[in-house]
């Protein structure tokens, strides 16, 4: 007898943790930096490189300053959670595993229309691309499902499968609420709005109106310089952290509307160079270890 899954926001996360832990995934914690997507987590970006198997799952808080709506739009947030799963190499039953995870959090595919709709994923700032789908549940995109083909400009050998669940959307769906702020967070009367509404209001104001642009430009320059400093010291992980920082500061500058269309491409190009440089350094640093464990493997 299967008991009905608990449907609070935090129960959903716990269920996913239990599900993927049972599949042999490491359950990691969020990366402690501001970033636009779970893909930036080193457990995804850097671990997608090289021959070593890697299976991990984690929640990553994401910040997208331009998506802020001062807490007034029931579907848009400048801060939200992604649930990330990365499985390398991609297992042959990845779609079935994913569908089983949906069933675990309470989505019945004979009551709800689950569809895999073409969506090619590309991240110019990470020099990465992959093929896959956005997964629709009754017309709503609930997950990004990607087979990574390249990361940091390097072929993924082997290919990793990445699942990115939009937790708030799934929870709204499962709980049947129309506003993200009405989500039951803990099953004991605390809503998502209780936790985050004030945060959305203040952060939207700061992102769009208050953030000191001179300081942001300065932060961007410093992150670029520090990344280069780390790269010349042969330290790809701290270098990559500076790439994450530069990327987020760039997003903040965008939200402040101080980057012209002409400049935009050049800023993105600089972030891409940092990310690629970090991936390249990571490959170089790991190469001897990989060569020993995987004789014959070539980048």
């Amino acid at each position: 007898m299967i008991s009905a899954p608990k449907t609070s926001f935090q129960d959903m996360i716990l269920t996913l943790h239990a599900f993927w832990a049972a599949q042999g995934c490491l359950i990691l914690q969020p990366y402690d930096m501001r970033m636009g997507a779970g893909t930036f987590h080193t457990a995804t970006t850097l671990r997608a490189l090289g021959p070593e198997p890697w299976n991990a799952a984690f929640v990553q808080p994401c910040r997208r300053p331009t998506d802020g709506r001062y807490g007034e739009n029931p579907n848009r947030l400048q801060h939200y959670y992604q649930y990330q799963v990365i499985l390398k190499p991609s297992p042959p039953n990845l779609q079935e595993l994913y569908l089983a995870s949906l069933a675990a959090i309470g989505i019945d595919p004979l009551l709800h229309d689950i569809r895999f709709v073409e969506d090619d994923w590309e991240s110019p700032t990470l020099g990465a691309w992959g093929l896959g789908w956005e997964v629709w549940c009754d017309g709503m995109e609930v997950t990004q499902f990607t087979y990574f083909q390249q990361m940091g400009g390097f072929d993924c050998k082997p290919v990793a499968g990445e699942l990115t669940y939009g937790l708030e959307r799934l929870a709204m769906y499962i709980q049947g609420v129309d506003s993200v702020y009405d989500l039951d967070f803990n099953g004991h009367g605390t809503t998502y709005g209780d936790v985050f509404l004030e945060n959305e209001k203040q952060m939207s104001k700061w992102n769009f109106e208050v953030a000191d642009t001179e300081s942001l430009f300065d932060l961007f320059r410093k992150a670029v310089a520090e990344c280069e400093n780390c790269l010349s010291a042969g330290l790809p992980i701290p270098a990559y952290e500076q790439a994450i920082e530069a990327s987020h500061v760039f997003n903040l500058l965008q939200a402040r509307g101080v980057i012209s269309v002409q400049e935009r491409a050049s800023y993105m190009g600089r972030v891409r160079d940092l990310a690629r440089g970090s991936c390249e350094a990571h490959m170089a640093r790991e190469a001897p270890k990989w060569a020993e464990k995987f004789p014959g493997w070539v980048a």
């Binding site: 021959p51 190499p89 991609s90 297992p91 042959p92 992959g130 093929l131 896959g132 087979y147 083909q149 072929d155 993924c156 050998k157 082997p158 290919v159 499968g161 995987f294 493997w297 070539v298």
Partner: peptide, 17 residues
């Protein structure tokens, strides 16, 4: 695209999915 354990080699098969 390439996929799965075989994709550790560049020679691995390619198909749309």
């Amino acid at each position: 695209m390439r996929w799965g354990a075989a994709s550790i080699s560049t020679e691995s098969p390619r198909w749309v999915r």
